[in-house]
């Protein structure tokens, strides 16, 4: 209810209610946030003058891919990272389908060469080991050295693809080598 006391607007159950001015700095934060929001929306969603998170990611991913390739297969981490990159995988798959299928089968299930989709590896199934096998080969056992033929980039791409096929266990050639869990 209304109050007669000076400076008091209402009284409810003996609680007095004053009616002071809104603090200016508080109003500034309110309107500031509203103006910022309008500007943000305008930039991002009306004029498209700023990159969306997805566009930003694509650019970063591109740069990151370049960084990984440039540093070469210096560590397992690099190769594993590449083996999760859809673009690298599709390039790697192209290489595989032209240069590797003859001995390893359409999907790596093995023909003359070993099955690449099981858990068994003759020369090691770790990322760097796979890369080295492709790059330097084991000529005495029928595996060519593809490094000089394909070039570093393609070897890296196809290594990434092969790494992504591990443990898919496609029906194919019987396991060879030692089991890696």
């Amino acid at each position: 209810m209304k109050s007669d006391r000076p400076g008091v607007l209402h009284v409810f159950d003996d609680i007095e209610e004053a009616d002071n001015h809104l603090p200016l700095w508080w109003l500034a934060t309110l309107f500031g946030a509203i103006v910022f929001s309008a500007g943000y929306w305008l930039m991002f969603h009306t004029m498209h003058q700023a990159k969306s998170p997805m566009e930003e990611y694509r650019e970063e991913a591109e740069a990151h891919r370049a960084q990984l390739k440039q540093s070469g297969p210096s560590s397992d981490g690099v190769l594993l990272a590449l083996s999760k990159d859809p673009q690298v995988l599709s390039e790697g798959e192209k290489v595989f389908k032209t240069s590797c299928v003859a001995c390893h089968g359409q999907n790596g299930e093995g023909v003359v060469g070993p099955n690449l989709t099981d858990r068994f590896w003759i020369h090691g199934g770790g990322p760097l080991a796979v890369h080295a096998s492709i790059s330097h080969g084991y000529p005495d056992k029928g595996m060519a050295a593809w490094g000089p033929v394909l070039g570093q980039e393609k070897v890296t791409n196809v290594s990434a693809w092969v790494l992504a096929q591990r443990n898919k266990n496609l029906p194919g050639k019987a396991p060879q080598g030692t089991e890696e869990p």
């Binding site: 397992d76 003759i122 020369h123 090691g124 760097l128 080991a129 080295a132 056992k141 790494l163 890696e180």
Partner: peptide, 20 residues
């Protein structure tokens, strides 16, 4: 050409990689 070739990690980098 590879009759159940024994484990021959001929490549030096190989053992560094733990089985993923």
């Amino acid at each position: 050409p590879d009759p159940a070739a024994p484990v021959a990690p001929a490549v030096p980098a190989d053992p560094a990689a733990p089985p993923a």
